[in-house]
Protein backbone atom coordinates (compact mmCIF):
# COMPACT_ATOMS: atom_id res chain seq x y z
CA UNK A 1 0.00 0.00 0.00
CA UNK A 2 1.03 3.58 -0.57
CA UNK A 3 0.78 6.00 2.31
CA UNK A 4 1.45 9.70 2.52
CA UNK A 5 3.12 10.93 5.67
CA UNK A 6 2.38 14.54 6.54
CA UNK A 7 5.03 15.39 9.08
CA UNK A 8 5.28 18.61 11.04
CA UNK A 9 8.91 19.64 10.77
CA UNK A 10 10.81 22.26 12.67
CA UNK A 11 14.49 23.00 12.98
CA UNK A 12 14.89 25.88 15.46
CA UNK A 13 18.30 26.71 13.96
CA UNK A 14 16.84 27.27 10.48
CA UNK A 15 13.08 27.61 10.56
CA UNK A 16 11.10 30.53 11.89
CA UNK A 17 8.05 28.38 12.40
CA UNK A 18 7.02 24.74 11.90
CA UNK A 19 6.09 23.58 8.42
CA UNK A 20 4.48 20.48 6.92
CA UNK A 21 6.50 18.05 4.81
CA UNK A 22 4.87 15.29 2.76
CA UNK A 23 6.49 11.97 1.95
CA UNK A 24 5.04 9.12 -0.12
CA UNK A 25 6.08 5.74 1.23
CA UNK A 26 5.49 2.23 -0.12
CA UNK A 27 4.71 -0.08 2.79
CA UNK A 28 2.82 -3.15 3.95
CA UNK A 29 -0.49 -2.66 5.82
CA UNK A 30 1.03 -4.60 8.71
CA UNK A 31 4.00 -2.24 8.92
CA UNK A 32 4.13 0.17 11.80
CA UNK A 33 4.33 3.92 11.53
CA UNK A 34 7.88 3.66 12.82
CA UNK A 35 8.78 1.54 9.75
CA UNK A 36 7.38 4.26 7.50
CA UNK A 37 9.32 6.95 9.38
CA UNK A 38 12.48 4.86 9.00
CA UNK A 39 11.77 4.49 5.26
CA UNK A 40 11.63 8.28 5.00
CA UNK A 41 14.76 8.86 7.05
CA UNK A 42 16.86 6.13 5.46
CA UNK A 43 15.85 6.53 1.80
CA UNK A 44 14.27 9.97 1.27
CA UNK A 45 15.31 12.64 3.75
CA UNK A 46 18.02 11.99 6.31
CA UNK A 47 17.39 15.29 8.06
CA UNK A 48 14.11 14.05 9.59
CA UNK A 49 14.59 13.65 13.36
CA UNK A 50 12.67 11.49 15.82
CA UNK A 51 13.47 9.35 18.84
CA UNK A 52 13.26 5.60 18.76
CA UNK A 53 15.09 2.91 20.60
CA UNK A 54 13.66 -0.55 21.22
CA UNK A 55 10.94 -0.27 18.55
CA UNK A 56 8.79 -2.74 20.47
CA UNK A 57 6.60 -0.54 22.61
CA UNK A 58 8.54 -0.81 25.84
CA UNK A 59 11.24 1.88 25.91
CA UNK A 60 8.80 4.76 25.46
CA UNK A 61 10.97 6.78 23.08
CA UNK A 62 8.73 7.25 20.07
CA UNK A 63 5.54 8.72 21.49
CA UNK A 64 4.18 11.32 19.08
CA UNK A 65 0.95 12.89 17.90
CA UNK A 66 -0.37 10.53 15.21
CA UNK A 67 -3.52 11.63 13.36
CA UNK A 68 -4.23 13.95 16.29
CA UNK A 69 -3.83 11.40 19.10
CA UNK A 70 -0.78 10.56 21.14
CA UNK A 71 0.56 7.07 20.47
CA UNK A 72 3.78 5.14 20.03
CA UNK A 73 4.96 5.05 16.41
CA UNK A 74 6.17 1.49 16.97
CA UNK A 75 2.72 0.28 18.06
CA UNK A 76 0.64 2.11 15.44
CA UNK A 77 -0.07 -0.14 12.44
CA UNK A 78 -0.40 1.60 9.07
CA UNK A 79 -3.59 -0.31 8.20
CA UNK A 80 -5.32 1.49 11.08
CA UNK A 81 -4.11 4.96 10.17
CA UNK A 82 -5.54 5.65 6.69
CA UNK A 83 -3.83 6.71 3.46
CA UNK A 84 -2.66 10.08 4.71
CA UNK A 85 -1.12 10.10 8.16
CA UNK A 86 -0.34 13.31 10.03
CA UNK A 87 2.55 13.10 12.43
CA UNK A 88 3.43 15.88 14.89
CA UNK A 89 5.58 16.17 17.99
CA UNK A 90 3.83 15.78 21.36
CA UNK A 91 2.21 19.00 22.57
CA UNK A 92 3.22 21.07 25.55
CA UNK A 93 7.00 20.72 25.43
CA UNK A 94 9.63 22.68 23.50
CA UNK A 95 10.44 21.09 20.15
CA UNK A 96 14.15 20.22 19.91
CA UNK A 97 13.85 19.22 16.26
CA UNK A 98 10.99 17.78 14.17
CA UNK A 99 9.34 15.06 16.29
CA UNK A 100 11.73 15.34 19.24
CA UNK A 101 10.62 17.36 22.23
CA UNK A 102 12.59 18.46 25.27
CA UNK A 103 11.60 16.01 28.00
CA UNK A 104 13.75 17.55 30.76
CA UNK A 105 10.73 19.26 32.42
CA UNK A 106 8.87 15.95 32.18
CA UNK A 107 11.58 14.10 34.09
CA UNK A 108 11.91 16.97 36.57
CA UNK A 109 8.27 16.37 37.52
CA UNK A 110 8.91 12.65 37.67
CA UNK A 111 11.78 13.21 40.13
CA UNK A 112 9.59 15.49 42.25
CA UNK A 113 7.38 12.59 43.38
CA UNK A 114 10.38 10.53 44.59
CA UNK A 115 9.86 7.55 42.28
CA UNK A 116 11.94 5.09 44.31
CA UNK A 117 11.53 2.95 47.40
CA UNK A 118 11.70 4.84 50.66
CA UNK A 119 12.11 2.88 53.88
CA UNK A 120 12.88 4.08 57.40
CA UNK A 121 12.45 0.85 59.33
CA UNK A 122 15.34 -1.52 60.03
CA UNK A 123 16.38 -3.35 56.87
CA UNK A 124 15.27 -6.97 57.18
CA UNK A 125 17.73 -9.79 56.58
CA UNK A 126 15.58 -11.27 53.83
CA UNK A 127 13.48 -9.60 51.14
CA UNK A 128 10.34 -7.65 52.15
CA UNK A 129 7.44 -10.00 51.55
CA UNK A 130 4.22 -8.94 49.89
CA UNK A 131 0.99 -10.89 49.37
CA UNK A 132 -0.48 -11.24 45.86
CA UNK A 133 -3.41 -8.87 46.68
CA UNK A 134 -0.92 -6.29 48.02
CA UNK A 135 1.04 -6.55 44.78
CA UNK A 136 -2.17 -6.36 42.74
CA UNK A 137 -3.09 -3.06 44.42
CA UNK A 138 -0.62 -1.04 42.35
CA UNK A 139 -0.12 -3.42 39.42
CA UNK A 140 -1.68 -1.10 36.84
CA UNK A 141 0.71 1.76 37.52
CA UNK A 142 3.83 -0.41 37.36
CA UNK A 143 3.29 -0.61 33.61
CA UNK A 144 4.32 3.00 32.92
CA UNK A 145 7.16 3.38 30.41
CA UNK A 146 7.52 7.17 30.82
CA UNK A 147 6.81 7.90 27.17
CA UNK A 148 5.03 11.16 28.00
CA UNK A 149 1.91 10.39 25.93
CA UNK A 150 -0.46 11.00 28.86
CA UNK A 151 1.07 14.23 30.15
CA UNK A 152 1.29 15.78 26.67
CA UNK A 153 -2.34 14.88 25.90
CA UNK A 154 -3.60 16.61 29.04
CA UNK A 155 -5.34 19.98 28.44
CA UNK A 156 -4.75 20.88 32.05
CA UNK A 157 -1.03 20.42 31.48
CA UNK A 158 -1.10 22.45 28.23
CA UNK A 159 -2.69 25.32 30.15
CA UNK A 160 -0.37 25.00 33.15
CA UNK A 161 3.11 23.64 32.46
CA UNK A 162 3.68 23.74 36.23
CA UNK A 163 1.12 20.95 36.69
CA UNK A 164 2.98 17.84 37.84
CA UNK A 165 1.09 15.86 35.18
CA UNK A 166 -0.49 12.41 34.91
CA UNK A 167 2.76 10.49 34.33
CA UNK A 168 4.35 11.72 37.56
CA UNK A 169 1.16 10.96 39.51
CA UNK A 170 1.02 7.45 38.03
CA UNK A 171 4.57 6.86 39.25
CA UNK A 172 3.76 8.29 42.66
CA UNK A 173 0.73 5.98 42.80
CA UNK A 174 2.98 3.00 42.10
CA UNK A 175 4.82 3.66 45.40
CA UNK A 176 2.03 5.22 47.48
CA UNK A 177 0.03 1.99 47.26
CA UNK A 178 2.99 -0.36 47.64
CA UNK A 179 2.79 -2.08 51.05
CA UNK A 180 6.60 -2.21 51.30
CA UNK A 181 7.13 1.51 50.84
CA UNK A 182 7.26 3.95 53.75
CA UNK A 183 7.37 7.25 51.86
CA UNK A 184 3.61 7.47 51.39
CA UNK A 185 3.12 10.57 53.55
CA UNK A 186 5.83 12.67 51.92
CA UNK A 187 4.67 11.74 48.43
CA UNK A 188 1.06 12.59 49.27
CA UNK A 189 2.21 15.91 50.71
CA UNK A 190 4.08 16.70 47.48
CA UNK A 191 0.95 16.00 45.43
CA UNK A 192 -1.40 17.90 47.75
CA UNK A 193 -1.06 21.31 46.19
CA UNK A 194 -2.64 23.29 43.41
CA UNK A 195 -0.23 22.00 40.76
CA UNK A 196 -0.34 18.48 42.17
CA UNK A 197 -3.29 16.12 41.79
CA UNK A 198 -5.79 18.96 42.22
CA UNK A 199 -4.97 20.32 38.76
CA UNK A 200 -6.51 17.16 37.28
CA UNK A 201 -9.97 17.86 35.83
CA UNK A 202 -10.74 14.21 34.95
CA UNK A 203 -10.69 14.87 31.21
CA UNK A 204 -9.59 11.27 30.52
CA UNK A 205 -7.31 12.18 27.57
CA UNK A 206 -4.48 10.45 29.44
CA UNK A 207 -6.40 7.18 29.55
CA UNK A 208 -6.95 7.27 25.79
CA UNK A 209 -3.34 8.22 25.12
CA UNK A 210 -1.59 5.64 27.32
CA UNK A 211 0.00 3.01 25.04
CA UNK A 212 0.21 0.66 28.02
CA UNK A 213 -3.50 0.80 28.76
CA UNK A 214 -3.05 2.23 32.24
CA UNK A 215 -6.23 3.68 33.72
CA UNK A 216 -4.44 6.93 34.52
CA UNK A 217 -7.44 8.97 35.62
CA UNK A 218 -8.43 6.21 38.02
CA UNK A 219 -4.92 6.22 39.53
CA UNK A 220 -5.10 10.00 39.98
CA UNK A 221 -8.53 9.60 41.56
CA UNK A 222 -7.16 7.05 44.00
CA UNK A 223 -4.41 9.46 45.05
CA UNK A 224 -7.05 12.17 45.57
CA UNK A 225 -9.06 9.77 47.71
CA UNK A 226 -5.98 8.81 49.71
CA UNK A 227 -5.40 12.51 50.38
CA UNK A 228 -9.01 12.94 51.42
CA UNK A 229 -9.14 9.96 53.79
CA UNK A 230 -5.87 11.09 55.35
CA UNK A 231 -7.45 14.42 56.31
CA UNK A 232 -10.87 13.20 57.39
Amino acid sequence: MKVTLKIKRFNPEKDEKPWWAEYAVEAEPTDRLLDALNAVKWYQDGTLSYRRSCAHGICGSDAMLINGSNALACKALLKNLGDTITVEPMRGFRVVKDLMVDLEPFFDKYKQVKPYFITYSVTPEKERLQSPPERERFDDTTKCILCGACTTSCPSFWANPEYVGPAAIVNAHRFIFDSRDEGREERLEILNHRDGVWRCRTIFNCVEACPRGINVTRAIGEVKQALMYRKL
Binding site: D108, K109, K111, Q112, E162, E189, H193
Partner: peptide
Protein backbone atom coordinates in the same frame (compact mmCIF):
# COMPACT_ATOMS: atom_id res chain seq x y z
CA UNK B 1 11.64 25.40 35.42
CA UNK B 2 13.64 23.89 38.20
CA UNK B 3 11.21 21.44 39.70
CA UNK B 4 13.45 18.62 40.85
CA UNK B 5 12.49 17.27 44.25
CA UNK B 6 10.53 20.38 45.06
CA UNK B 7 8.10 19.91 47.90
CA UNK B 8 5.47 22.59 48.20
CA UNK B 9 3.09 21.81 51.03
Amino acid sequence: MNGAARARP
